[in-house]
Write a protein that binds this DNA or RNA. Structure first.
Lengths: 166, 166
DNA sequence: TGCGATTTGTTTCTTATGAAACTAATATCG
DNA sequence: CGATATTAGTTTCATAAGAAACAAATCGCA
C-alpha cells in the first residue's frame, strides 16, 4: 500500500515542532522526577519558587508573566504553596488588589535543595556537547521565538505563553 | 533585598530545560492553532493521522510507540476519530486482540489539507535560520535524548516518552 | 465627586490527563 | 491439554488544565 497519496507526506520524525516537543517533554519529565517525589512539588509550584528565588518578592501576575504560565495555573499553584506554608503573602498597602508573595523559610529550604539538583542535571545533560552546538541552540531559540511572535501577530492571535514542563 | 541566599541561584531564563519547554510549547500552540479550529482536531488526533499518513495502517499500540504518546491518550483519540468517521478499524484475523487502523476518505481529506499547512508553517519558522544552526539543533536533540536515556537508566526509571504538543 | 472601565486574583464548569484496574485474546510452559 | 503469564486495548478514578464568569479594588475621566 502506498503510505500516502499526498505529494509531500509529513515525516513526523523530521518535523521540527514535533521533535522539539518530544525532546522538551523528555527533559522536563526527567528534571521533574528529580524533585517531585522527594519534595512533592508540582512543576508549576517549582517554577514559582524558582522565579521568587531568582528575582525576589513579586505578585501572582508578575510570576505568570515571568514563567509564561496561565494565571489560573499560577493561582492554584500558589494556593498549594500557601497551604504547605512554603509561601507567604501580604497585601500591598498601596494597591490592595495586589498580593505580594515571598518564600517562607520552609519554602526557601526546598528551593535551596532543588537548585543544585536541577543545575547538576542540566550540567550532566549538556556534558560533552560542543559549546558551539549549545550556542546554536540559543540562536535557534531566539529565532523561533521571534518567528512565532511574528506569525501570531499576523494571525491576529493572542496566544499567551501557555506551556507545560520543567 | 538579596535575590537568593543560595550560592548558585537558578536563572530560569538561562536554564536549558526551561527554555526548551517554553519554546516547544509556543511552537506547538502556533501549529495547533493552524488546524484545531478549522478541523476541530486535537493534538493527539492529528498525531495519529500523521503517522498513519506516513506509514500506513497500524494498530493503536504501534501508533503509541511511534508518537511517544501514552496508550490511554491514543485510545481516546482513536475513539474520537472513529466517532467522526475519520478512521476505520478492523480486527486482525491472525490475532483478534489487534485492531488495525486506517484513515477513511474523510480522514485522509483532513490529513491532506493539514500537511501543507504544517509544512509551510515549519518552513516559515525556519526561514532565514542558518542551516548550520538547524544542524546543530539536530545534534543537540540527539545528544539530549541519549543523555536523558542514560540518566533515566541510572535512576532505574521507566519514563515512557509521555509528552505534549504538536 | 462618581460611575463605568480596568486590573488582580479566585472560582466554576467542562474537558484532558495518566495510573491502575480491568476485559478479552493469545502465548508459554509444565 | 490446561493453568499461568503476557499482550492489546478500554474504563475507572482522581487530579490538572484552561476558558469564561466572577468579586473586589483601583483607575480615569466627565
Amino acid at each position: 500500500m502506498v503510505p500516502s497519496l499526498n505529494e509531500t507526506p509529513l515525516n513526523l520524525e523530521r518535523f521540527m515542532p514535533y521533535r522539539l516537543s518530544v525532546l522538551s517533554n523528555r527533559v522536563s519529565a526527567l528534571i521533574a522526577k528529580l524533585y517531585s517525589d522527594q519534595f512533592s512539588l508540582t512543576i508549576p509550584e517549582w517554577r514559582i519558587l524558582a522565579v521568587l528565588g531568582r528575582y525576589g518578592e513579586m505578585t501572582a501576575t508578575e510570576v505568570a508573566g515571568r514563567t509564561a504560565m496561565d494565571k489560573v495555573r499560577v493561582s492554584r499553584a500558589i494556593a498549594r504553596l500557601l497551604e504547605a506554608e512554603r509561601l507567604a503573602r501580604r497585601v500591598d498597602p498601596h494597591d490592595r488588589r495586589r498580593l505580594t508573595l515571598e518564600m517562607t523559610e520552609t519554602g526557601r529550604a526546598v528551593y535551596d535543595q532543588i537548585v543544585p539538583l536541577a543545575l547538576s542535571a542540566e550540567k550532566r545533560l549538556l556534558a560533552s556537547l560542543p559549546a558551539a552546538d549549545l550556542a546554536a541552540f540559543e540562536r535557534l531559540a531566539t529565532h523561533l521565538n521571534a518567528a512565532v511572535a511574528a506569525f501570531e501577530a499576523e494571525l491576529g492571535v493572542v496566544l499567551d505563553g501557555a506551556d507545560e514542563g520543567v
